[in-house]
């Protein structure tokens, strides 16, 4: 499935909906969306990952990028990540800086 990013800004809550494969070749689009979210002064970033297939190391690094870009005060929630994706996030220890939420 082709990678796609949908960005929605709802007051101070920014939702990014991902679908397809997030890897080195597509991470740039995701980074751009994160940059827009940061620019919108979001207090919460919701990443909808239900339609996300494979997550490569570059994809995982994008979550670190999101954390840095958004700053400490912003809650980042990843919703509906598949079990392999959620497991990788937990094992790397990233679940301490973002919230993993079931769909």
């Amino acid at each position: 499935m082709a990678f796609d990013v949908q960005l929605r800004i709802d007051d101070k809550v920014v939702t990014i909906e991902l679908s397809g494969e997030l890897d080195a070749s597509t991470a740039g689009e995701f980074h751009q969306a994160i940059g827009e979210a940061a620019g919108a002064g979001a207090v919460e970033l919701v990443i909808r990952a239900e339609q996300l297939g494979h997550l490569s190391s570059a994809g995982l690094r994008s979550l670190v990028f999101a954390r840095q870009k958004m700053g400490d005060g912003v809650r980042i929630a990843v919703i509906g990540a598949s079990e392999p994706v959620a497991r990788t996030i937990r094992l790397a220890g990233f679940d301490h800086s973002i919230d993993l939420v079931d769909a």
Binding site: S56, S57, L60, V64, T88, L91, A92, G93, F94
Partner: peptide
């Protein structure tokens, strides 16, 4: 590292 295949061993 469980995440070694992702190149995440340093983070883990």
């Amino acid at each position: 590292a469980a995440t070694g295949p992702f190149g995440m061993q340093a983070d883990e």
